[in-house]
Amino acid sequence: MSVMSFTLGQRRPTPRAVQVTTGSAAPAIPATATGTLAELDCGARARVTGVSGGADPATARRLVDLGFAPGAEVEMVRRAPMADPVVFRVAGYDIALRRMQARCIQVSTTS
């Protein structure tokens, strides 16, 4: 599994610069960072750890039904010209979410 790293709240100079491969041979315990989908940079990948619709459980349920289920791998594909909404690739398809919804999805990244 190839995982792209990301640092929360900080832009990386180049998205591809810190790509690491964690195979079975990797001896070190990977450090994980947690955050929400809204904090991913372009090209970054993360794994969904949970979905909280804020006050609305119906939103959370819908996001799971759209493929943002715990364990799913998500890639941030691109942002709209005015930074919102954002396209994510999950479960093999592309879907645009507003940042407000992206913030409901907790993810962890391995670096």
Partner: peptide, 11 residues
Amino acid sequence: GPLLPFYMEMP
């Protein structure tokens, strides 16, 4: 009504 979350598939 409930506030619908915005999502849009990009086929």
